[in-house]
Design a protein around this nucleic acid. Structure first.
Lengths: 340, 340
DNA sequence: CTGAAAGCGCTTACAG
DNA sequence: CTGAAAGCGCTTACAG
């Protein structure tokens, strides 16, 4: 059934070397031989054993992708684009789901290195705060592209969103709509995007001469709908008055809105709410959710583009360029901030 | 920097064979040697080159997974479970997104076979109607597990949902709520799940002595929100009266509901709507969407379990068992069918 | 333009 | 308990 290159060579009375070269279109093989070999290979359904080719050529044509949460629609969109472009360039994808866990992330990196992937494209887990595993990637002459959740200290290629600017836009939008008592449900203290969105919030307040009130900032680590609901309840029961709310993610915003609706609070007229990410769900609910779009597929496309360019650089000049790309966000205005 | 097994052997004054066996815990190596080798390997950060091990041992510890739409939350949940269990059993995942295209699916299968994956777990694309590529997997002594969208004609392991029963449950639920003029937005004519849900709809009508009206059945191929909206509009403008609607997916149902709401039609009292899949979005909208739950993570878990058991069977008895597993669905009652 | 030889980095019978 | 040798299935200098 299965036939090896050697066996094909024997049947065609050629050397294995000639057959290999013919299949791989080496210029020093006659067209006649190439045609003979290729048509025979097609006839018997010959497929080269990738493991063997890889071992010899030291290139696996494989990219390792690590994502913190595979069910998150934002990462999903990024992944989709990465896969489409990888396929187009004849790369396979080995996928890892770190589940926001540093130790799993570390394990996946080691596993991928062992498998000799040509590059690793990854977004860091929330509790990743040391970077030995990333340095290890670079030390192994493997291309590393960080996207979305990146480590600023590591010298590699990066694509990420200007979160501070995004947080600023979201908050300023609320201010323009007339909100003056604006709360913020932020993420954990560690992840860079959580910090930056918070800083954007602070800056928008400051630029607009609205004094900052730490009691209006609550922390959600999970970023889930349930947490949004719970934080909204906590804020409401604490008696702190607000007329605007900027949430770190759409999910948190949807949870908060659900609580406010249960309290018969008019969204957006009593409290305007804005999320972050432009998840599809935000467009399905009533009131539809204003949000900040992060251009997921652009992030994915740039990550692959950077990988390909680094890979080429490594091959031709044996060095990396380490480009950083910062993408701007876009404000999406919907009903949850459309005051009458 | 990087060190090979051979180099390690030299430094430890051992043979490469002994080092390899020590690392892989062969029983015929002394504990002292094992400890020596392992601790040294750890010290210098030695990691076996997977490509080389694979080539020699003919096992890649890799599973190829092919999914028709990677952004679909249902497949996503399945994928998540598959990945968690694969990781737990020390398998890597190579992922392919067929985008519902037969030719891409075929290409991915060939690519995976070339990479000598130990098994392929896949859900078929909607326009897959010939199965040579599947037979090819089996002919290559590679385990094949089909899930959700399966080919009944192919003799391999399968996990899928009893779609006919699901369609029956959905339709009967509408009937129990008092609906007598029930429309169905079905999927394409080819996919098995589309056919089966439709058959369940027919059977529920027939069992309950409601005459079938072909004008109340419309076809959506994409299964998108937009199509749901368009079909609802088409039905509405055609003047055909209905008081219940069963949609092939939640997305189609959400699109239909959006149109009906724009027409100020009372959901559920004028028209009750039920979807299929139990997508998260269905729980976020108002009215929340009644639906049929397909137990995505159960499907994923069973797919991996079947793979592992087939893999073992192949190793020990050199044959496959080809088990088929049919999972029952569950009715989820929410507001979109909760008549007052 | 084609072939003989070496080798990628491991593992696996086999011998002792 | 350890080692020498062969080999997994390819590709790549090198020679002619």
């Amino acid at each position: 059934m299965k036939i090896s290159l050697k066996e094909m060579a024997k049947r065609l009375s050629l050397s294995p070397a000639a057959v290999s070269k013919a299949l791989n279109d080496y210029p020093d093989i006659s067209l006649a031989t190439k045609n003979l070999v290729k048509s025979y290979a097609k006839k018997v359904g010959y497929k080269a054993n990738s493991q063997a080719s890889f071992l010899r050529s030291q290139k696996t044509k494989t990219i390792g992708v690590i994502i913190p949460d595979i069910t998150n629609p934002f990462f999903n969109k990024i992944l989709k684009t990465i896969m489409t472009l990888a396929q187009k360039n004849n790369y396979s994808i080995i996928l890892g789901n770190s589940k926001e866990s540093f130790s799993l992330e570390e394990k996946l990196v080691n596993q991928f290195l062992q498998q000799k992937v040509d590059g690793i494209l990854m977004s860091l887990a929330n509790d990743t705060s040391q970077y030995k595993h990333l340095e290890n990637i670079l030390a192994n002459d493997t291309v590393l592209v960080l996207f979305d959740k990146v480590a600023k200290l590591i010298n590699c290629s990066k694509v990420f969103v200007d979160d501070k600017d995004g947080g600023f836009k979201a908050t300023e939008h609320l201010i323009k709509k007339g909100c003056t008592k604006i709360a913020h449900f932020r993420g954990g203290l560690n992840p860079q995007n959580s910090i930056d969105r918070y800083l954007g919030y602070r800056e928008a307040l400051s630029v607009n001469k609205i004094s900052f009130d730490p009691n209006k900032v609550l922390i959600t680590s999970s970023g889930s709908i349930e947490q949004g609901y719970i934080l909204a309840k906590k804020l409401y029961e604490s008696g702190i008055e607000i007329d605007g709310l900027f949430c770190i993610t759409d999910m948190v915003a949807l949870g908060a809105i659900r609580f406010f609706k249960e309290q018969k609070i008019d969204i957006p007229n009593e409290i305007s709410v804005i999320g972050f990410s432009n998840t599809m769900a935000g467009n399905l609910v009533y009131p539809s959710l204003s949000t900040i779009d992060q251009k997921a597929s652009k992030i994915g496309a740039e990550a692959v583009r950077l990988f390909l360019s680094e890979e080429k650089m490594l091959k031709t000049e044996n060095r990396l360029e380490n480009q950083s790309l910062v993408l701007k966000t876009t404000l999406i205005k919907r009903e949850s901030t459309q005051r009458i």
